[in-house]
């Protein structure tokens, strides 16, 4: 059993199921990427794993424990962390305050973790007292990831972290994400930029209409002709 495992999840927002018996799992120290066409249910699968969407059937397990019924807040306490695609920082608070809020639940000293996060994202170092709302898109994404890192999570989930940032910033972010995974965290992300994302993925999932279509290592998926022709534009 994988560290985080959503098994045969079925569910949606109303009467119609968006996810249909969809299974996603993530392993510690690995980068897992979910790709697929628009409306495939990538973000929905992520939300189901984090408890933001009730599943009608199927289960979510974290480290062998069934967490299907837990609220997102309880899952944060269990060591999961989520970076939403948009509205993922506190814009009228400084970078430091954003990080502090990320560590809100922690009772111990969080200063060490703040320094670790700032080491991971050196670009934020000189901006620590600046308002997050005044930063560039790429820096804001770094703050968003940093905030999620503050709980010292075991699972870090990112919903399209590179949406709206330039290709250079995207490469930079991906490098950081690999670094995060190498520290033993299970990283799971949904990506619109399928090709570069699969290049860094240890495991890739291709979803189509809420179902698992292909599951393989990132490089195997990139080498797969059908995946390339259908989803990666040749």
């Amino acid at each position: 059993m994988a560290f985080l495992a959503g098994t045969e999840m079925t569910g949606g927002y109303g009467a119609i199921d968006i996810l249909r018996s969809c299974s996603i799992s993530a392993e510690k120290g690995q980068v897992t990427v979910i790709v697929g066409p628009n409306g495939a249910g990538k973000s929905t699968a992520m939300k189901a794993l984090f408890g933001m969407l009730p599943v009608r059937s199927g289960s979510v397990q974290l480290d062998g424990e069934d967490i299907t019924a837990l609220t997102p807040q309880r899952r944060v306490e269990k060591g999961m962390s989520f970076v939403p695609q948009v509205l993922n920082v506190f814009p009228s608070m400084t970078v430091l305050e954003n990080l502090e809020m990320g560590g809100y639940l922690r009772k111990d000293d969080i200063r060490g973790t703040i320094e670790e996060v700032l080491e991971l994202f050196p670009a934020l170092q000189p901006k620590r007292r600046q308002l997050a709302g005044e930063l560039s898109g790429g820096q804001r994404q770094q703050v968003a990831v940093g905030r999620a890192m503050m709980t010292r999570p075991k699972v870090l989930m990112l919903d399209e972290p590179t949406a709206g940032v330039s290709p250079i910033v995207m490469d930079e972010l991906f490098d950081r994400i690999i670094e995060v995974a190498r520290t033993g965290i299970a990283v799971l992300m949904v990506e619109q930029n399928a090709k570069p994302a699969l290049e860094i993925a240890d495991v890739g999932y291709v979803l189509v209409q809420g179902e698992n279509k292909f599951t393989d290592t990132g490089s195997a998926l990139l080498a797969n002709d059908e995946v390339r022709m259908t989803f990666l534009g040749g």
Binding site: F90, P91, M93, Y104
Partner: peptide, 23 residues
């Protein structure tokens, strides 16, 4: 104060405050 900052965070972005564990 931590509580005061949590209030500002909640006012700023209610959903993200929830994801950070702010009640």
């Amino acid at each position: 104060t931590k509580t005061g900052k949590a209030m500002r965070a909640f006012a700023d972005n209610e959903d993200l405050a929830g994801l950070s564990g702010i009640s």
